[in-house]
């Protein structure tokens, strides 16, 4: 019995180490250079309807991230820029740029904080991750990772993440609520490393009304 317990503890530790190692690899890989990717799939809107979603994500590691909304059509033209200290939120329909301290701003909005996916270490502070196994995807072999939020404020009850093994980065993410209903299903495509500048990520219409909310 003691032997069995020892084996279980050892296996548990080994799995924990593996997930920590995967997280470290993804983090190191995504922090190597600026990159961009497109996220496509479906998200549940606050009114309960599910809509087709397409977001463009651009990241300068440890500095800036920009999410541009292409779909749903109601959000086309809106974007969010996240820096260490601030969140910029641009609303196309009113041509307003709302600037809030990062600690106060709610970036989630759509049930998913998209920038967390570019900063897995930050995600692990808020979600308990564990390795569920491996899976073959069109992009190659991938780790299947499950996650449960450490507190309810994240807006979802469970998540599943596919991480490409050959080039450790997220491929697919699914968020579910407490009733196991899908809140968001998003796939990463068009991942490429590219030269991004802070100016390009902060690009906005010059005549936007700037509103600071402290």
């Amino acid at each position: 019995m003691k032997k069995l317990l020892a084996v279980a503890v050892f296996l548990g530790l080994a799995m924990a180490q593996t997930i920590a190692e995967i997280t470290r690899q993804v983090q190191a890989n995504l922090e190597r250079s600026p990159w961009e990717a497109t996220l496509t799939g479906r998200v549940q809107m606050p009114d309960g309807s599910t809509q087709e979603a397409e977001f463009r994500l651009q990241v300068i590691p440890r500095e800036l991230a920009r999410v541009e909304f292409k779909k749903p059509a109601a959000l086309e033209g809106n974007f969010v820029v996240i820096s260490e200290k601030e969140v910029w939120n641009y609303l196309f329909l009113t041509n307003q740029l709302i600037i809030q301290p990062r600690a106060k701003a709610r970036v989630e909005g759509l049930g998913v904080n998209l920038t967390d996916l570019s900063d897995l270490e930050q995600l692990t502070e808020r979600v308990t991750l564990r390795l569920l196994g491996e899976q073959n995807t069109p992009a190659g072999a991938a780790w299947r990772i499950g996650g449960v939020p450490k507190d309810a404020s994240l807006g979802f009850a469970s998540m599943e993440l596919l991480v490409l093994k050959a080039d450790p980065r997220p491929l697919y993410v699914t968020l579910r609520d407490a009733n196991n209903r899908v809140l968001a299903e998003l796939g990463f495509s068009g991942f490429r490393r590219t030269n991004l500048t802070p100016q390009a990520l902060r690009k906005r219409p010059a005549d936007a009304e700037v509103i600071r909310r402290n």
């Binding site: 606050p46 974007f79 969010v80 609303l91 701003a105």
Partner: peptide
Amino acid sequence: GATEFSALGR
């Protein structure tokens, strides 16, 4: 006053 809904509106 204002209430913010992130990218969804305000």
